[in-house]
Amino acid sequence: MGADRESRERAATGATAAPRRGRLDQPLPPRRWFLPEWDPEAFGRLSERIARFLGTGRFIVWMTIVIIVWVLWNIFAPGALRFDGYPFIFLTLMLSLQASYAAPLILLAQNRQDDRDRVNLEQDRKQNERSIADTEYLTREIAALRMGLGEVATRDWIRSELQDLVRELEERYAEGSGDERVVFPAERSRVRDVDDR
């Protein structure tokens, strides 16, 4: 009877047959994971450190020392203290276990290095594109300046024009008589004023 009543209430309110899990404006509660969680970045850094150590001479020296001590202990120690007999099966198992973990850790470290290299190459490519664009821009600007400098009066040209004007003034001054020496004739200045406008 109670279930029948709930279905009638849903039909009256227009609700769907499936019950709502919660409000849409609120996030769902976090799901519980039964597997352990880890930080991929921290795990990647740890794998890189291990791979870096595995690639050093120190690791080879320590590994050689451990194997020599292991073999010598299991050969020369009293029988009750030996834990791995002559075929050294436990040593083989330990070396296989170490190799089975070392290979994936090294591959993970290489993948992370490849990702970093890819990002660096992309940044280098973008930097090169920017440098090329800047160089092309500067080349265009320099070409425009050179073209503009072709129309600009240079120091030598201005000096020669001033020397010519001084010579012309000196000649006119020398031609004038007594007090009537005119440096700038009136007719000539009017013509220049008209032309300058």
Rank of each mutant, 00 (worst) to 15 (best):
I67Q: 04
S47G: 04
A153S: 11
V152Q: 12
R192V: 15
L108I: 14
Y86E: 07
Q110T: 05
L91R: 03
L169Y: 06
E161G: 01
I75D: 13
E122V: 05
G79V: 07
D117C: 09
L105A: 14
R167F: 04
L105T: 05
L91H: 02
R116N: 10
F184S: 03
A144I: 01
Y101K: 09
S160L: 14
E175K: 09
T56K: 01
F88D: 03
G57Q: 13
L169I: 08
N120D: 15
L93A: 15
L145E: 11
T92G: 15
N128L: 13
G79S: 12
A103L: 14
W157D: 09
L97S: 13
T154V: 02
T139I: 03
A133T: 05
V69A: 13
Q123D: 05
E180P: 00
R112K: 12
M147E: 14
N111T: 08
E170A: 07
E129F: 01
Y86A: 11
F76H: 10
W62K: 09
N74S: 02
R172K: 12
R181M: 15
E136C: 08
V66F: 15
I60K: 07
L149E: 09
P104T: 00
S47E: 07
L46C: 07
T154M: 01
V71L: 12
I68K: 07
V69S: 11
F53V: 02
G85K: 07
I60C: 08
S177P: 03
D117Q: 12
F184C: 07
I142A: 08
R172E: 04
N120E: 15
R130P: 00
S100H: 04
G176D: 04
L105V: 02
T139R: 12
A133S: 06
M63Y: 07
L145V: 01
E129G: 04
Q123M: 05
E170G: 08
D193Q: 13
Y101P: 01
D193A: 11
R190I: 13
R118A: 13
A174G: 01
L46Y: 05
D115V: 08
G57L: 06
L108E: 13
R116I: 09
R159K: 10
E168M: 05
L81V: 09
V166Q: 08
L81S: 13
R118T: 10
R82A: 10
A77Q: 04
A99H: 03
P185H: 06
R52H: 15
E122Q: 14
Q123L: 12
I132Y: 08
D179K: 10
E175H: 05
G79Q: 09
E170F: 04
G150M: 09
D114S: 11
T154Y: 00
R112A: 15
R159C: 03
W70T: 00
I106E: 12
I106A: 11
E151Y: 06
I60Q: 14
L145H: 02
G176R: 02
I89M: 08
D117V: 09
L105R: 04
V183Q: 02
S189W: 10
R82Q: 15
I65V: 14
V66T: 06
P104D: 00
D117G: 07
E129L: 06
S160F: 05
L54I: 00
F59G: 00
R181W: 02
A109Y: 02
S177R: 06
L108Y: 05
W62P: 01
P87Q: 03
N111Y: 13
I132C: 04
R172V: 03
W70L: 01
